[in-house]
């Protein structure tokens, strides 16, 4: 009975196609970075004299490029994905906090947020492929903690959204979350209640310490759930202090731990 092939409908996940598509996606990402840097961004200098406007347009361009890139990886079958309440991410001035299972989480999030600022690895400001984008969009380098918090809080007060992974780096599967407290300080300083995005990727792909070509046998699905921290956190009238930051961080960690346990 088990040998009767017609009765066993095997799910076809096209491993080799996905592997090839993943390789193409990596190349495309680097190529896209160069196109932004050398083709699309230089004219912005002449079209938009105002540095603030130019920065916003650059972020909008990155947003559309990421949207197209997410679409490319979807139609080539690298993954399937779904957002729940994605329109909520479009509202301005949000502190968007998410867990960080995969390399492409930030690409997904920015593809849904038109004026997104984010905290990026300082080394990307020296990376030839990424330099154009991160400097023109005026993203925040992750070198000095106090500077990150101040720049992010100012950004929020200007009505930009800030995307941040409180873990600071990708999660290690099976290990408890380790949250840094910068997110809490930003929320306290700007008095902005965070928007929480739970990212689930099943089976996991592009994890920390795993090479890009080590893709899962079945096709991953990304699920994004968006929640307000309205009932979770009390910020109003709370002064910025190490204890307040600890309490908020503790609650954030509990939220994501519970969400991701399911």
């Amino acid at each position: 009975m088990a040998n009767d092939k017609s009765s066993v409908r095997k799910r076809r996940d096209y491993y080799w196609v996905r592997l090839l598509a993943t390789a193409s996606a990596f190349s495309l990402f680097g190529f896209g970075g160069l196109v932004l840097r050398f083709v699309l961004f230089p004219p912005l200098r002449f079209i938009y004299r105002d540095a603030e406007v130019r920065k916003r347009k650059a972020r909008l361009l990155i947003h559309h490029a990421f949207r197209a890139f997410i679409g490319f990886m979807h139609i080539t079958g690298i993954y399937t994905y779904s957002f729940r309440d994605e329109e909520r991410l479009r509202r301005p001035g949000q502190l968007v906090l998410a867990n960080h299972p995969s390399l492409i989480d930030v690409v997904f999030l920015i593809s849904r947020i038109p004026n997104a600022n984010c905290i990026v690895k300082a080394s990307l400001f020296r990376n030839p492929f990424m330099r154009g984008a991160v400097t023109t969009a005026d993203y925040i380098p992750n070198d000095d903690p106090e500077k990150i918090i101040e720049l992010a809080a100012q950004s929020l007060q200007r009505g930009e959204s800030v995307v941040l992974f409180p873990e600071g780096t990708r999660s290690v599967p099976g290990r408890p979350f380790k949250f840094q407290r910068g997110a809490a300080y930003m929320a306290l300083r700007a008095q902005v209640k965070p928007t929480l995005v739970t990212i689930r990727c099943n089976p996991p792909m592009l994890m920390k310490n795993i090479p890009w070509y080590s893709i899962p046998l079945s096709r991953p699905h990304f699920q994004f759930d968006i929640a307000d921290a309205e009932h979770l956190l009390q910020l109003r009238g709370t002064d910025e202090s190490p204890l307040a930051a600890r309490e908020i961080t503790h609650k954030l960690k509990a939220f994501f731990t519970e969400e991701c346990a399911a």
Partner: peptide, 8 residues
């Protein structure tokens, strides 16, 4: 105690 705490 992290670097932000150290500042405080």
């Amino acid at each position: 105690i992290d670097s932000i705490d150290a500042v405080d």
